[in-house]
Amino acid sequence: MNIFRLAGDMTHLLSILVLLLKIYATKSCSGISRKTQELYAIVFMARYLDLFTDFISVYNTFMKLIFIASSLAIVWCMRFHPVVRRSYDRELDTFRYFFLVGASFALALVWHDKFTLQEVFWAFSIYLEAVAILPQLVLLQRSGNVDNLTGQYVFFLGAYRAFYILNWIYRYMTEPRFTRWIAGISGVVQTALYADFFYYYFISWKNNSKLKLPA
């Protein structure tokens, strides 16, 4: 564990807490893409299959369980909570996300560390995570306004990916034989998507105008 990875994990946790706080405090999920949240639930369940086979540390196991439980809780709230579900922007959240799941799985079948069930699902989860934010960005683009908590949620998610890139650079330099091509390249793609969003978020915030992402 190095400081960059810890900072990445903490900002990731913070992003989820911000989202839960928004839903709990406002009893509303407007501006949140349920499709993105469902993709994250799939990402964590596919990636953490190793909970059954490998023990790394108490911290590692605890965080994995937190990520699985919190993502399922958010999806549950948006689908079934009697008050929260009414504010779901169903007509704006129309991204065809099965395409992302299919493409990520197809890529995992051809590019993985080992052709085993666990490794293919791990690679699948990495590719899917890289693009899981897309339905959320499309929803924000359509609704045209981003409330502070939703903006902070996406900001912390972006910070988490940026810290992980620093972590990989650090490990590459300090650990012999450390390479993470799959996670590294996917991580750069994912961080670029967030950086792009923040560029337009910042511009619209500075001009005090509606968010306008390029189509």
Binding site: R5, D50, N60, D113, K114, Y164, F178, T179, A183
Partner: peptide
């Protein structure tokens, strides 16, 4: 190579 070692990241 270590790319196929146990995945120790989240």
């Amino acid at each position: 190579s270590s790319s196929t070692d146990v995945k120790d990241e989240l």
